[in-house]
C-alpha cells in the first residue's frame, strides 16, 4: 500500500516539506499579528514574511572573535538537513522516498542529529549566550528523548514492525491515536522540543537574547530558522503515519488525507506555540522524567498487552 516513489521524489520532498513549513510560518505570523493588533490581512502577513526573508538574504553574516567556524557552519546547516533526511521515510499517501525496514529508527536518528547540530551551532561562535542556548538544547533533548522513544516503541510494538508503511497498514481498522493517546501527546511534545519552538524555545530563548540565534545573522540565520520550521513540519508529517492512519480515510485519495491530517497536526502545533508560554527547563525536566516518562512506559505496557491478547 505504501510503495517507493520514482527517483525524482528526492527533489519533490524538500519542496513539499518547505510548503508545509511556509504554511506553518504564515499561520504563526498571522496569529502573532492578530494578538498584537498589527495588520493581519493575508497580504500583509505574506509581505512581512517575504520582507524578512529578503532582509536576511541581503544582510551580512556575522563573524566573531576566535569562533569555531567549522562546527558553527556544520551545526547551522545540520538542522535543515536533518529535517529533510528525516522525511525520507514519511509517506505522503502511497508515495515515500524509501520505506526502510527500520524507518522509525531512521526518523529517530535524524531527530537526534538536531541535538548535535544545535549544540555545535551554539558552541561555534564563541559567545556565552549562544553557548548556553546550545547546552539548553541538550538538556531539553535529554528530557524529551525517552518519552519520544517510548512513544515510537509503543507504535512499533502495536504494528510489530519498524517499517512506516507497515505501521500505516496496521491502522486500517483503528488509528493508533485512539488507544495510544499518551504516546501521541508525548510525540507531539517532543516535536515541539526537537524543533525548539513554542513552549520549548528555551535554546533560542528571549531571556538569552536569542540563545543559539544570537550570533547568527544574514543567510546563516535564515538557514537555521528555516531548519526549525522544517523540523516542525517533519514531526507533524511523521505523526500522521504513526498515529493518525497515514493516508487512510474514506472518499478522498490517500495523498489528500495525508496532506489534510498533516495540516491539522501542524495547525495544532502552531496554535500551541501561541497559546502556551515558554516552559522553563528546570520545570520541564522533572515533569518529563517523573510524569511523562512513566506514563509512556504504561502506554507501552498497554500496547504490549493488547498485542499479546490479539
Amino acid at each position: 500500500m505504501v510503495e517507493p516513489a520514482p527517483w525524482w521524489a528526492v527533489l519533490v520532498v524538500p519542496a513539499v516539506l518547505g510548503a508545509f513549513a511556509t504554511g506553518a510560518v504564515l499561520a504563526s505570523r498571522l496569529l502573532a499579528a492578530r494578538a498584537s493588533g498589527a495588520p493581519s490581512r493575508p497580504r500583509a502577513v505574506l509581505g512581512g514574511m517575504c520582507d524578512d526573508v529578503a532582509g536576511l538574504l541581503v544582510s551580512r553574516r556575522r563573524t566573531t572573535l576566535a569562533s569555531d567556524l567549522v562546527l558553527w557552519r556544520l551545526g547551522v546547516v545540520g538542522v535543515p538537513v536533518a529535517a529533510i533526511l528525516a522525511v525520507a521515510v514519511v509517506p505522503l499517501g502511497h508515495w515515500v522516498v524509501d520505506d526502510l525496514r527500520v524507518g522509525v529508527v531512521w526518523f529517530n536518528a535524524m531527530e537526534i542529529l538536531t541535538w548535535a547540530a544545535v549544540w555545535a551551532a551554539g558552541w561555534g561562535p564563541n559567545s556565552a549566550f549562544s553557548l548556553v542556548g546550545g547546552y539548553r538544547m541538550v538538556a531539553q533533548g535529554l528530557s524529551y528523548e525517552l518519552p519520544h522513544m517510548f512513544a515510537l516503541i509503543g507504535v512499533a510494538t502495536a504494528a510489530g514492525s519498524l517499517q512506516v508503511g507497515s505501521i500505516v497498514a496496521h491502522q486500517r481498522h483503528l488509528w493508533f491515536v485512539v488507544w495510544m493517546p499518551v504516546g501521541f501527546a508525548a510525540f507531539l511534545l517532543s516535536v515541539l522540543g526537537f524543533s525548539f519552538i513554542g513552549p520549548f524555545d528555551q535554546p533560542a530563548g528571549a531571556d538569552l537574547a536569542g540563545g543559539v540565534l544570537v550570533e547568527v545573522a544574514g543567510v546563516d540565520r535564515l538557514v537555521l530558522a528555516v531548519g526549525r520550521w522544517l523540523l516542525l513540519a517533519a514531526g507533524a508529517a511523521m505523526a500522521v503515519p504513526l498515529f493518525l492512519g497515514g493516508g487512510l480515510g474514506p472518499g478522498l485519495p490517500a495523498w489528500a488525507w495525508s496532506v489534510l491530517k498533516t495540516v491539522g497536526v501542524l495547525g495544532a502545533l502552531v496554535a500551541t506555540r501561541h497559546l502556551v508560554p515558554t516552559v522553563r527547563l528546570e520545570r520541564w525536566a522533572p515533569l518529563a522524567w517523573l510524569v511523562l516518562l512513566p506514563l509512556t512506559i504504561v502506554q507501552d505496557l498497554v500496547a504490549a498487552v493488547v498485542v499479546l491478547l490479539r
Binding site: 529508527v105 531512521w106 529517530n108 537526534i112 541535538w115 549544540w119 558552541w123 533533548g141 519498524l162
Partner: peptide, 21 residues
C-alpha cells in the same frame, strides 16, 4: 544489518553530544 547500523547512529550521536558536554 540495517537495524544495528541505524541504532549505532542514534546512540553515537546522543553519546557524543553528552560526551562533548
Amino acid at each position: 544489518l540495517s537495524y544495528l547500523g541505524t541504532v549505532i547512529v542514534v546512540m553515537m550521536v546522543m553519546e557524543m553530544v553528552i560526551m562533548a558536554v
